[in-house]
Design a protein around this nucleic acid. Sequence first.
DNA 1: CTGTAGACTTGTGCTA
DNA 2: AAACCACAAGTCTACA
Length: 266
Amino acid sequence: MPELPDVEYYRIYLTATALHKTIARVEVRAPRILEGVTERRLRSVLAGRAFQSARRHGKYVFAAIEGGEGGWLVMHFGMTGRLSYFKDIGDDPKHDRFLIGFENGYFLAFVNQRKFGHVALAMSPEAFAEAKGLGPDALSIGREEFAVRLGERRGGAKATLMNQKVLAGIGNIYADEILFRAGVHPKTPVNTLDEETLGTLHAVMGDVLHTAIAAKRRCEDFPGSYLLPHRHEGGVCPLDGTPLETITISGRRTYFCPTHQSDERE
DNA sequence: CTGTAGACTTGTGCTA
DNA sequence: AAACCACAAGTCTACA
């Protein structure tokens, strides 16, 4: 699940549940998810403190640590995962890899079935993004910068949208959705797209991400005109029923409509 | 720079 | 039925 809209939802969830509550205990149940930090260090940084705010950049959530040395807790979910706030330790969710217990008796769990996720510490979201080489967040990037950054690239449209160094937050599912709605073939070299198409791509990206976040918050399904519900074996284009085609790009399965996403390379 | 393939990890669903 | 293989919403490294 965890592409930008999902992670934005986790940020909202963390904000709604876990801010301004004193942390009493920290437990790491799968050490492999720790990145550049030890359980002992996490304990000393978090115990007795509280989170004061939460932010997101791309697919990362950051929680500001109030008091002490300050700093930020960083979380990335990999291909699976979510946050869960619960009261009874006996109700701890399956696959909880990292647990924060608050003085009020509640817990916040970093749930991560496949263990591709990571927990780290950073001085700031900006410093972390810089160190990782992440591009601007896909929800914040303006039309101009979007056009410039894509214009500098020679790769295919989908691979470029998913490249976290170009812009951060788009993954396999939403790359397909954005390209479908913009009518762009996933292999179109981005440097061949004209200004108008780049503008469309940028606008569609914003629409898709905002729509997805709103849908998550209300636990709604996606609009029927979206590709997402049809993105499976035997799926057809929601516009006219054309069977969707699949190809592999960057090792990820790619679904697209051969009639509405013309191949510009010919 | 680009694209591809393989690793990492765990669960699920298909095949037989 | 149990077991096996392919595959899944991510990212990193090695290599052509």
